[in-house]
Write a protein that binds this DNA or RNA. Structure first.
Lengths: 148, 148
DNA sequence: TTTTAAATTATAATTATTCTAAACAAATAA
DNA sequence: TTATTTGTTTAGAATAATTATAATTTAAAA
């Protein structure tokens, strides 16, 4: 982890190591403030600005990606590889969705545009919340793309 | 246009009609402030809050869609039908991209998730800016999904 | 060590958006 | 038509997330 920071030309400070450790393998897509609140007890001097600085440095280095799937708040995903995200409107959780870029019918439509990146956000209800609200009833494909 | 508002149970005020007229057929995806600045000369009493109120009312009624494709600002699209958006990092323009939901390989992966909506944002360089920066050189498909 | 360049911190500033409460206007009732 | 009600607009204050600032501290190089 220290060497990972060094490789990026970043100093291995305790704060950065703590942030990296918290993010490592984390599937919860925390916001900057989530991270701050979680670490503050162990690092009483920690500043929210440091959390933002570190996240921005890591994002710029391609070590993580920002997820903008909710209204006014960014979330952070330690997995920088391109994949989609699903937001459950009941429990407000964000889930990773592995979708191969090739599965999205973009390429054939590119024409004269240079597509360097894409973001695919999905919205709906996750399996756990579906079970609670509908007793586990199966949803058929026809409803899948209808707006709420 | 008046009847459109009436149908939604909204009063046909001059401000709302002006906003509707400005948006009608507009492909520029303006922000709330773009709209405000554009209409202010003709409606000196216009308030930014009214622009936001009207946009929110229209969005809730399904008459337009919000586009969240840039960092901290929302844009508005008078076309409420599901389609993707392309953001050019050179000229900062937003373009509509007609992509059929069925062309996105989501359905087959849904499993136990209920997908009610999706957002597909594309980032890169638009044809006009490509011409200026690269002399019109054609980009081959292999580069299409590489991050910058 | 000593140095120096980078990082952290507290706080102020910024930006987009939302809230508030008063003034106003449109539709309805008398 | 006038009065009343209800919804709308307005200016400005408030908010929330994020970014900038400037002084202090720290990691790593010399």
């Amino acid at each position: 982890m220290i060497s990972k920071l060094k490789k990026l030309g970043l100093k291995a400070t305790p704060q950065r190591l703590a942030i990296l450790k918290l993010l490592d393998g984390n599937k919860l897509h925390p916001s900057a403030e989530d991270i701050y609140k979680r670490l503050k007890p162990d690092f009483p001097s920690l500043s929210l600005a440091t959390v933002y600085n570190t996240l921005e440095a890591l994002a710029k280095a391609g070590e993580l990606q920002e997820v903008r799937i909710t209204a006014g708040k960014r979330h952070f995903d330690p997995d920088p590889s391109p994949h989609a995200h699903f937001y459950c409107r009941i429990c407000n959780s964000i889930y990773d969705w592995r979708i191969n870029p090739a599965d999205i019918g973009i390429a054939s439509r590119v024409k004269d545009y240079l597509v360097e990146n894409y973001v695919l956000n999905l919205y709906g209800v996750c399996p756990g919340c579906l079970k609670e609200t509908e007793g586990g009833k199966t949803i058929n494909d026809k409803t899948l793309f209808e707006k709420e």
